[in-house]
Design a protein around this nucleic acid. Structure first.
Ligand code: ZN
Ligand code: ZN
Ligand code: ZN
Ligand code: ZN
Lengths: 146, 146
DNA sequence: GGCTTGTTGCGACTCAGTCTCGATAAATGG
DNA sequence: CCATTTATCGAGACTGAGTCGCAACAAGCC
C-alpha cells in the first residue's frame, strides 16, 4: 500500500536517521499484503535473517504510525494490527477472509460527524472507524465452498 | 447507562444462572460513570470486599458483551475498556476529559456505509466507530483553566 | 433434599509490549 | 577521511493483561 522508498524518504524528511533496521522495516512492510502485527514483522525478519530486535520493531511501528505511514487497527478479536497506507486521514475496510485492506475516504461521514457534534455538544477531536467484511474475491471463494 | 436489574433480568431471560458474582458485576457496572476496564471492576470489587475472581470478571464481561449489555471500546491509548449501554447497535462518543460516554445512533452513517459497500464490492459484516472529544462540561472547565 | 451441570476461584501460565543500559553507528563538520 | 555527538539498536529482564485447567461450589429443577 505504501512503497518502501516512501517510508525511507519520509523518515529522512522528518530528520530521523536512516539505519539498517529502518530500511529493513520499510522493506518488510512494503511486501506485506493486508494487515500485520508486530509479531508478524518480527518473525518475517528472522526468517530472512535480518533479525530485528523486538523493541526495535515496536518502536519503529510507533514512529511510523506517528508519521501516518502506517495505521493501527484494532481487529474484532482485540488484536492490535497495522496496515500500511498513504499519509492522509482515512479509514480501512478490512477483509476478514484474506486480511487485505482498502482505504475509504471520509466522504459523507464528515457531515454525519459534524451533525453528531452539534447534537451532543461534544467537541469531537478524533474518531476511528473500522469496517470488516469479505472482499469480492473471498465472497466468490466462499460461495464455491458452500 | 444500564440498570443493574436490566443486566440480571437479561441474563435470566437468556437462560444464564443468576449467581452472587454476577449480581456483583451488575451492581459494579451500574454504578460506574464513563468507561471502565476489567482491572477497574476488579479493584472496585476488592475495595467493597466483594472479592470477585480475576477470571470471573473477564468471563462476565465477555458474556455481557455478547448480550450487548456492555460494549468494548478500544481507547486511543490501546487500552481495552468497556461502556455499559442499552442492548442495541450504536456507537459511543467518549469524553477524553472525564471518560463519560454518550450513545450515538446509527443515523446517516448507515447510508454512508451502504454506499461504501457498493463502491468497493465488499460485503460489510460489521463495523466499529469510536468518537473521542470533550463534553460540554469539560470544555468549560478547560477554557477556565487556560 | 438430592442431582445435574453451569459457574467460580485459584494459581500457574502465556504472550504482547515496555524498560534499561551498554554498545553501535548515522550524521555532521572540519 | 577522521572525530564527535547523539540518535538508535539489541539483549534480556520485566510487567501486566488476559487465559486455562481443574477441583469445589451452588443455581435451578424435580
Ligand atoms: Zn479478501
Ligand atoms: Zn475519518
Ligand atoms: Zn467530559
Ligand atoms: Zn453502527
Amino acid at each position: 500500500m505504501v512503497a518502501g522508498d516512501t517510508i525511507v524518504s519520509t523518515l529522512q524528511r522528518h530528520g530521523y536517521r536512516i539505519t539498517a533496521p529502518r530500511r529493513g522495516m520499510a522493506r518488510l512492510i512494503a511486501e506485506r499484503q493486508g494487515h500485520f502485527t508486530a509479531e508478524d514483522l518480527l518473525r518475517a525478519s528472522r526468517r530472512q535473517r535480518a533479525g530485528l530486535g523486538r523493541a526495535t520493531v515496536f518502536r519503529s511501528l510507533e514512529l511510523l504510525a506517528s508519521l501516518d505511514l502506517v495505521e493501527r487497527v484494532d481487529l474484532p478479536s482485540g488484536e492490535h494490527a497495522y496496515v500500511s497506507c498513504e499519509p492522509a486521514h482515512h479509514h480501512h475496510l478490512v477483509c476478514s477472509g484474506c486480511g487485505r485492506a482498502v482505504g475509504v475516504e471520509e466522504g459523507d461521514l464528515d457531515a454525519a460527524l459534524r451533525e453528531i457534534g452539534r447534537r451532543t455538544g461534544y467537541q469531537i477531536d478524533s474518531h476511528r472507524l473500522e469496517l470488516f467484511g469479505l472482499c469480492a474475491t473471498c465472497q466468490r471463494a466462499d460461495s464455491k465452498v458452500n
